[in-house]
Structure formats: structure tokens, C-alpha cells
Design a binder for these strands. Sequence first.
DNA 1: CCATAGAATTAAACACTGTACAATAAATAA
DNA 2: TTATTTATTGTACAGTGTTTAATTCTATGG
Lengths: 199, 199
Amino acid sequence: MARRSEHTREELTGMAIDAGCEMIAEKGFQQFSARGVAAKIGYTVGTLYHLFGTLDQFILHINARTLDSMYDEVAKGVAKKPAAGQLIHHLAHGYLAFAKKNYNLWSALFEHRLEDGSTEVPDWYAPKMTRLFGLIEESVLPQVKGDRKKAARLARLLWASVHGITTLSLAGKLEIVQADHADKMIDDLLEVTLGYKKK
Amino acid sequence: MARRSEHTREELTGMAIDAGCEMIAEKGFQQFSARGVAAKIGYTVGTLYHLFGTLDQFILHINARTLDSMYDEVAKGVAKKPAAGQLIHHLAHGYLAFAKKNYNLWSALFEHRLEDGSTEVPDWYAPKMTRLFGLIEESVLPQVKGDRKKAARLARLLWASVHGITTLSLAGKLEIVQADHADKMIDDLLEVTLGYKKK
DNA sequence: CCATAGAATTAAACACTGTACAATAAATAA
DNA sequence: TTATTTATTGTACAGTGTTTAATTCTATGG
């Protein structure tokens, strides 16, 4: 009924986010529930609301963690790939690979729709996206001879396209037309967009 | 309590799908509920289950109708655009326009995830996708000098890319990087992919 | 024309959701 | 020690999808 002082508030939020990630990874976003997470960490829903205020905020924290690990995984090999072509290839295929490997967590990123109207994302969340995006922008810079404005445009285009390929192929919506080889499609995209063949 | 005979079974399914479409269009897929639809047509949830078996099947029927109207709207102007470039432009922008105009219905197409495992879509559903896809394939045929295999590949690529652009921009996930002009991005994509400028 | 078989419709129940809130118990401040 | 703040719980409410037994109508056959 009252303060337990077994864990600090920070520990608790950590535990909750851990459990939430696990739950989504295992059962998918649809099966995710506040009560389930609460049970998993040995507390009650009330505590979660006390920690995060609203379920939306809680999910936002979970998604933020996913964005972080996506960044880590994708950024890992960047230093090793100086050639422009290899770099963007690395990023694009890295994105797909991450989505494939962590399908439930990745798709939670997009399945989670904020409540009506409040399209706004918290201040601490946006940077997690932009730094990921910045990676792509950098990788594409040589292609446009250092023109940052063009780089931004191209990066957006590439990202959206790769995202579309990833989405449709992983959701099985492309199966109908036999296109489960998303990696090949990404190669096609990059070839046609950047004007060179892989390898 | 029993058969009312105010409507035939076919009328009833029609009414239910109508009401379901309206409901999603107005309130979004999240707010959609079987009980809500039932109330709207003056029946009970039980009747819906009697008609469609499961909620998944019901939603599939709603989505099928959306696919149909998307096809109608997109295919409308096709006969008038014989030039290869204009045609694919028309389709791409048509897709975006439809998604923008019918955002809730369109996004229900992708928000609806089938229950675990059963990735399979019913036999009557698949053709609704393939004929839409065929439209794109045709439109791209001149570009690859009639090579149907190449056309299929290019069509998949374009579709996935346009879909990605549409998804991210309409969900506001690109706002972070100021890219709300999806139409411009589509032009970029087509220019870079097909090798010509618009107009 | 009436009894009976069959099918449609309902109400109720079950096991879940998210969310809110008053009550309680522990830690901290005075 | 007493008072105050704060964490935690249990409980409750209004929803959800789904199932099932019981109804009540329609149509069929005798």
C-alpha cells in the first residue's frame, strides 16, 4: 500500500521499460498491456501510471529505447565504410536487418499512434530520430558534392523509400506479388537512385 | 431474439460494412468497435459475429471496400494519360491523394494486423491488391521497353517507395525533419528513378 | 392449418483492456 | 515525536472482443 523503497524511482522506470520491451518483443505490440508489464515487475498498474503519467508516455519511452538500439546497431560499422556507396548501402541494409531481427519492437515504433490531436512528440524524443536521420544525411553528402540541402532531400527520399520497402515486405503485404527479397529491392533502389551497381 | 426479416442477409452485410467504413472514416481505426457498428445499424454484436464469423473477417471486408474505391479513384483518369511519364505520375500522386483524403480508411489497411500466424489473406481479397498493382505494372511497361519481368520489379520498387513516402509524411513522422511536402518527394523519386523531370 | 425443424437475434456472461481515485503505509521533515 | 509528503495498492468504472444459451421468428412438411 505504500512506499516500498526496494527500488529507486530510476530503477523502477528502468525495470518497467525493460519489461515493456521484452513483452513487445515476445508477444507483439497488440498483446502489450500495462497490467502485463506491472505483473512482470511485481508491481501494480497504478505504479506505472505514477511513473509515466499516461500509457502513451510509457510506450514512448519503450520506443525511444528501440530507436537507441537501432542507432547503435546501424552506426556500429559506419567508421569502417568510408566509401560513399558502401556507407549508404550499409545504412539501408542495416535498417532492414534491424527491422527484420526486431520486428515486433520496430513495428511498435509505427503501430503506436498518439491520441487524437496531440501529434506532438516530447522534446526529448525528437533528437533520437534526428540523429538517426543525420547519419543518412552524412552518408549521402558526397553523392551531392557537399550540398547539404540536396543531401537532406535525398536522405529523406531514401529513408522513406527504404522504410516503405521494409514495411511492406515484413508485413507480408508484398507477398501477394512475390517480392519477399527486400534486400534485392533496396539494391535496386540505390542503384537507380544513386546511379551505381553494388560491388 | 430471432429473425426479423427486415433485411436480407446481403442487405445486412452491406449495412454493416457501410457503417464500419463510416465509423473508421470518422473516428479512426483505433476507435472502431464491433459494438459501435452494431448500434449504428440497430443490431447487436452477436449479429455481426453471425454474419462475418470473426471481427478480422469483418475488417477485411471493410478494407476490401477501401481497396475498391482506391482502385476506382486511381484508375479513373488512366485512359486519358497515354504518355508513360504522365501515367505513372498520375498513379503515384493519385495514391497519395487518396491516402490524404481518406486517411483513416487508408491507414486501416495497414493498421489491421491479422491474428498470430494466420498471415494468409482470404482468396477473394488478394485480387483486389493485384489488380491495383497491375495498374502500376502497366504504367511502367514502356519505361522498360515491354520487359514484363523488369516492369514487375520496377513497379514493386516504385509502389513500396511511394507507400513509404505516404506513410511517413501522413503519420507526421517526417515532420521532425520538415518534409511535409510529400508530392514534391514523389516527383523527386520519379525523376531520379525514371530519369525525367515532371512537365 | 398447424406442428416442427431450422436459422436469426438477443441478452448475458467472461476475461480482458485503460484509467481514475480514495485509502493506506512508509519515508522524510519539523 | 508529530506532521507532511509520497509511493503503492485495491477497487471501481466503462469499455473491449468473444462465446453461448435462450429465445422468437420464418419456412417447411404433413
